[in-house]
Design a protein around this nucleic acid. Structure first.
Lengths: 223, 223
DNA sequence: CCCATGAATGAATGAGCATTCATTCATGTC
DNA sequence: GACATGAATGAATGCTCATTCATTCATGGG
């Protein structure tokens, strides 16, 4: 029982389980994000979700389970939305920029919850912590693939792709982590644009620079 | 009473206060880092420090106070060690690289405690949280000054210095935050070197590139 | 209409832990 | 050596939760 990625429920109807858990996790994520894991009580969560305390224990074994599914949901959103944003984009460079932009936009949407992953991953049981980290690695790979394609296509000069991807990730996360310092200096779009100037453009080859200029013109026409 | 940056003590002898607090904070930092703030009890801290529970309350008003001084110590270490590492270095570029290297080295030394600042700053009372953030801003300014000097001296081309400094900070913090992913790929020195390749070298002017080459030769001779 | 089954409730339990404080200890002073 | 002062102790207090479970509610089939 209790494989790392799974959470057990007393209730059997899968549809109901899905709905109730969604309801509980959504309330929990809000409260965990605002006040942290330990300051949030099961009674708070129940009130916020509009259900009784006991009901939570019909759908989760314990509080750790609730945190786990909350964090898992955040990571899954990353894993879903970034590929979705790349849909239909062909040029490697454009894909890379889109991926960075998408990452930042997801972080923006899940600002509080992203901070939560930094604050609370360590509060999880060890096996689940690893599970969550794997999710992060999977997301990184999405970016890494975009970056590698740019290098392979000769649009970016060869660089330490592994580390550069980390910089992209950190750049996106910073939008949530350092919100207090960035918020009143940049809009989200400006932030992304400046990020690309710092973390993509310096590595462009001549070929890449030409392609990039084309996109920028195209984009300006779209605005 | 209780100005944000101060902590009150029942004990009056300043020397004793300094020693005991050091002893308590050191134990607390260790435990907070390992298990988090809420899972660490005052009784744990007392045992780890080899003193009684009651004594902690002679030197700290409450548990929040202990966390606060722990975090404050980390920030102060940053603020002290980075300038110390720049001592006697004149060339702006060399200062910038030294500052980045020093930052990474402090993070390495305080690896667990640095993670703690991310996990637990929000557990502090609001006014103290601001105090801690100010400390971070002050540290950033150290780096910003180095970076600006490089630009002013024509060694780096003009860039968004504010954001680039954040990338430096994140790069250093990542050494602690993403330890599990970086540890077995890079030694600390390699990490710093690769960081400079990604976050400094791309912005070098011709003049800067020449200067950089000189330092590298000098450094190789030193090894 | 009567049961059986699964869902939902929320008061009660009990463990854990921050904080207090009555007491003891160490020292310096006269 | 008696006293005063400040340090140190750790058992006791009281509060805050996670978790349980006896009970109630809703439904659907017979």
């Amino acid at each position: 029982m209790s494989t790392p990625g799974t959470v057990e429920s007393v209730v059997t109807d899968p549809k109901l389980v899905g709905e109730r858990r969604q309801q509980i996790v959504s309330a929990a994520t809000k409260l965990f994000s605002e006040q942290g894991y330990y300051s949030t009580t099961i009674q708070h969560i129940a009130r916020e979700a509009g259900i009784s305390v006991g009901l939570i224990y019909q759908y989760f074994r314990d509080k750790d389970d609730v945190l786990f599914l909350s964090l898992k949901l955040v990571l899954e959103t990353y894993e879903n939305e970034i590929p979705a944003a790349l849909e239909g984009i062909d040029h490697p460079l454009e894909r890379l920029c889109a991926a960075i932009g998408a990452y930042c936009r997801v972080v923006d949407k899940l600002r509080e919850a992203t901070v939560l992953t930094y604050r609370s991953t360590k509060s999880l049981r060890a096996d689940r912590r690893i599970f969550i980290k794997d999710g992060e690695i999977r997301t990184n790979r999405l970016l890494e693939a975009c970056l590698r394609a740019c290098i392979a296509g000769g649009h970016l000069r060869p660089v330490n792709d592994h580390l550069l991807v980390y910089q992209y990730v950190l750049f996106a996360h910073a939008w949530a982590l350092k919100q207090w310092a960035l918020r009143d200096r940049y809009s989200l779009d400006e932030y992304v644009e400046e990020g690309i100037k710092l973390l993509v453009e310096p590595f462009l080859t001549d070929k890449g620079r030409a392609a990039m200029a084309r996109f920028k013109r195209k984009q300006r026409r779209r605005d």
